[in-house]
Write a protein that binds this DNA or RNA. Structure first.
Lengths: 196, 196
DNA sequence: CAACATACGGAACGATGTTCCGCTTATCAA
DNA sequence: TTGATAAGCGGAACATCGTTCCGTATGTTG
């Protein structure tokens, strides 16, 4: 919420230049490391890649979740905004819901281990829920509600559990077992949503 | 396959008495520890509870998966045998499939962390696949095939991916979030299986 | 009972997360 | 420009956990 650099009401104490530089370096290094080694990449590796000490990571991003949130912030935001857009442009609310879930699956399957982290329930990933889940759930809920109002789906399914389920289905998709296609299983789930 | 104590063809060298005693103690301790702390309980804790050294665990159960397999062997076997039984006693193959999946969910949700381990893909859990997955997949496949032959479900879904998906849906059920009911999501998935 | 192989215990090692503190350096007022 | 101050930094140090290894203890057998 706060922490934006507008010096409106708060004292807005600008951070030191090297601190900002390191934060940026950390973000870049983490983004690269996440791609190559997944979001569970050892802290030391990220620190080394960024050319800083491990202490510096913990100062800027107290938990791993904080770092993940910072790295993927923009993509989550894009997903959030795609919700209403799809609802407006699709032929039916159910179609919009299906398309949006597809977008979410796109996001998840390209970030190795992210889905797992999101469902882990580990208290260390609290801020992940705060910034990702809690942000996306309302969007999903809105799509769900619209489809429900149109009589296209069975009632009683909430945004949280649908997102959670989709996340779970994508959790095991990282291990390259050709017999498992996360997207197809998500399709099955979404098909099951239909009233009939 | 082998390792049964019939001295038929193999030399059948009986194990030392203390070795058998320790194996039993380990199994009991692990079963108890799995219930209270999940299947990820530290090796040292199990060793301590069984009153043995850590080396003894690794001698009897080289990987954690071996221990898990040994502890849950019977329950998996019961699940395997329930497949044909349900197929014979249910009104339709689809009903049998749904009931069997329900049984499988029962098994998973009561073993904290087991579902996660099963989907982890970690090579350390190789023997879990060998003894659990590979055992259950054919049963699931048989039910799937029967329902398919009866025209009750859409084609193209394999036993492995259905089981894997169900396992995934149950993976995140351990964290007591009241908003997520794994069984309901599995129901949704199974409903999505219907041809329409 | 003695000799031997089996099995045991737990110290030791490596990987990883996390904390802590002495040192460095950016910032700013004089 | 320069000196004081505090924000920020690096990485050693500690804790946890999985895994290995080997000297020792003990069941088994002749």
């Amino acid at each position: 919420m706060a922490d934006l650099e507008d010096g409106s009401t708060s004292p807005a104490p600008r951070k030191r230049a090297d601190a900002r530089r390191n934060e940026k370096a950390l973000l870049d290094a983490a983004a690269a490391a996440f791609v190559t080694s997944g979001v569970d990449v050892p802290v030391r590796d990220i620190a080394a890649k960024a050319g800083v000490g491990v202490g510096t990571i913990y100062r800027h991003f107290p938990t791993r979740a904080d770092l993940i949130v910072a790295v993927y912030q923009h993509q989550v935001e894009a997903c959030v905004q795609a919700g209403p857009a799809l609802l407006a442009s699709s032929s039916t609310p159910y179609a919009a819901l299906a398309a949006w879930i597809d977008l979410f699956v796109d996001f998840l399957v390209t970030k190795h281990g992210l889905a797992k982290a999101m469902q882990s329930g580990d208290s260390a990933y609290q801020s992940l829920h705060g910034s990702f889940i809690d942000r996306l759930v309302p969007v999903c809920g809105q799509l769900l509600e619209a489809a429900g109002a149109a009589g296209e789906i069975r009632p009683g399914i909430g945004g949280f559990e649908l997102m959670f389920a989709v996340g779970n289905l994508c959790s095991g998709a990282d291990y390259g077992d050709a017999r498992y296609d996360a997207r197809r299983m998500v399709d099955l789930l979404v098909a099951g949503l239909r009233a009939g």
